[in-house]
């Protein structure tokens, strides 16, 4: 108990000491996971709605692939990204391994299916007549997709929260693609892992608290928007 108590106390004093390294790590985490979530939204929501609306052969197969992607082991994602970006790999010439960009790529691969799966489900669960009514009002294909995405936005907020949560709390792929380089690719999760291994629990706890607060605040904001709109809406 003493260990936990002392750790918490030191962690709090570290937090309030305005340690520049802590804030640098936090900021990088936010930037990497935030941009990964934004990219995953673009890649997940619109194609998700298109898959939901369009009839094509092997549709069920594609949807089950995406659902598998939602449970894809991040370590394997990390491995594939590293293989592709390795100096002698197919994308090695880009020279981006062990940079924040590589971490963003890994997180996009992890978060996109998490956002896309529920997006498909949300659009599919709209009544069929809303689709027909939209078309009958003269919508073209893209206008239809846009209207349907707007109609499902309450459910999509949930998907975005899950996607961001998956991205920011992920550690394996981030370690492999970023390398946990101090001042360059060190983010909250990789720093916690490293500090815990070294036995510097107070720093690990301080970073853990920040990670918890971050995910909580962002979910709080999105939940607020979702519930607020929901009450005024249907």
């Amino acid at each position: 108990m003493e260990l936990i108590y002392q750790g918490l106390k030191d962690a709090l004093s570290l937090l309030f000491s305005w340690n520049p390294e802590i804030w640098q790590i936090t900021l990088l985490s936010l930037i990497v996971s935030g941009s990964a979530t934004l990219i995953s939204m673009a890649l997940g929501i619109i194609p998700g709605a298109i898959i939901a609306v369009t009839e094509f052969p092997a549709k069920r197969f594609v949807i089950s692939l995406i659902n598998t992607g939602m449970a894809f082991p991040p370590v394997v994602v990390g491995l594939f990204v590293v293989l592709f970006l390795w100096r002698s790999g197919p994308l090695g010439f880009l020279n981006i391994l062990y940079t924040p960009l590589a971490m963003v790529i890994a997180q996009v691969i992890i978060a996109t299916p998490i956002i896309m799966g529920p997006s498909i489900l949300a659009v599919q669960s709209l009544p069929n007549n809303i689709k027909l009514q939209t078309l009958s009002l003269g919508a073209n294909y893209y206008q239809l997709i846009w209207v349907l995405i707007k109609e499902t936005r309450l459910l999509l907020y949930g998907a975005i929260m899950a996607g961001f949560g998956g991205a920011i709390s992920e550690v394996g792929a981030v370690m492999m693609t970023g390398g946990n380089i101090k001042g360059q690719t060190r983010v909250l999760t990789s720093a916690i892992l490293m500090e815990t291994r070294k036995g510097y629990f107070e720093l690990a706890i301080a970073l853990g608290i920040i990670l918890l607060i971050l995910t909580f605040v962002i979910n709080l904001i999105l939940t607020h928007i979702q519930q607020h709109r929901g009450q005024n809406g249907r």
């Binding site: 009544p127 007549n129 809303i130 027909l132 009514q133 939209t134 078309l135 009958s136 009002l137 003269g138 919508a139 209207v147 707007k150 109609e151 936005r153 809406g233 249907r234």
Partner: peptide, 25 residues
Amino acid sequence: RRKITLVFSEHIIYNTSVKENIALG
């Protein structure tokens, strides 16, 4: 479909204002 429009028997209402619903077409 730009010339012909159908009004369905059930109420199909978009989750926006009355004004925006009507202006959609």
